[in-house]
Design a protein around this nucleic acid. Structure first.
Lengths: 119, 119, 119, 119
DNA sequence: GTGGTCTAGACCACA
DNA sequence: GTGGTCTAGACCACA
């Protein structure tokens, strides 16, 4: 994983985990990677992962079991609600960035069509 | 203007100016707002604006005239190239965020159509 | 039993046993629950119970008989002294927490009267 | 300030600040001690204070102003609600600790009367 | 000077 | 091995 400058690492990790949950790569009930393990994998200090996990726990997307690890919530409604919120937010932000610089909605859509498979 | 936490203020200002140039709100040759003036308008320390302007100057989108202020470049090609780069970048980032969470390109487009006029 | 975060489990168990002794639920001379048994009942690692028992033994409230188990002390004076100390300590802590936030002693007492039967 | 073993330092700091707010010693709108200043005063690492303040901010009792410091909320209703919750919680905990070890409500009250002025 | 983030690393409770 | 807390200390953005 490669981190953007200009955004904190822990929020990038947070979003990374979040997206994997939304995508169903981390299924409800699944045990998340151990803090130190993930820290190692991302070449990051464990405390940074701790903070990312703490934020996710505050939202309720993950929960802790003392000494046992962190787990994806089994509250499907919450996951779906957070996912919808996330997408809406990204769409809004994207449109906000691009709007006014292209003539039309159609142009934006063309851009997306043109780049969808690049990624 | 309202700044996001979690991203530096100066990059947010930088992008704000950039977008106004790309949108043609700040036309080539135009004198940009004075540092103190903009700082005041944004409730920000002048040093922060200085930094944002410096970044834009490094890219070449604006230039200084000694005591006279900062101006939008008249290099149309550069503006267009930067604009294209900016849009491409935003599209890529957007698709990268959303992809895999929705079934298809079509769904993303529907989301955008659904929200385009909100903003 | 449900453990508070933010306090070690073994001190919570220690206090739990202590209180049962003070309340006379565990009478002097009584054999305490076996370590494994209690650990199982509390869904806790046996080592944790061992530690709680060790603390109680250090105080003198319980004693070991080699292979036979742990027993409540028959030193009534010690029990009473510890009980008095415990209550005094709780009262002090409680007053310390609440004092200055309510106008008067009377108000604290009213609070207690109002909640005594809730628990 | 002297910290109890067996409870995390940051929660003790958190409660310490909380109580000062409830007591009106830290009035709404007041600027809280700077992180490093408080850390120094309490002989504690700045990060520990950061965490305590972060918890208080999550509750809403304090808020941040970028680079300017932390301030007590001016939401009087929130303060009163949290205060009521805090007192109720302390009373409940206290009664829970003591109940069953003394004969009666009256005895508890007598204990409090007997110790109220000690603290 | 103010807060925010991050690292390296230790030590603890618990399983 | 698991997470939680804490320290010492650095570096950054911002005022």
């Amino acid at each position: 994983m490669h981190f953007k400058e200009n955004e904190t690492i822990y929020t990038q990790i947070e979003r990374y985990i979040k997206k994997r949950i939304f995508k169903g790569e981390y299924r409800p009930g699944l045990r998340l990677p151990a803090i130190r393990e993930l820290a190692l994998a991302l070449s990051v200090n464990p405390n940074t992962v701790v903070k990312a996990y703490a934020e996710l726990e505050a939202i309720g997307l993950i929960f802790s079991e003392r000494t046992n690890g962190k787990f994806v919530t089994e509250d499907y409604d919450l996951i779906n609600a957070e996912k919808a919120k996330f997408i809406k937010c990204e769409v809004k932000e994207f449109i906000g960035q691009i709007k006014g610089m292209t003539e039309s909605e159609q142009e934006i859509i063309n851009y997306i069509k043109g780049h969808y498979d690049d990624i």
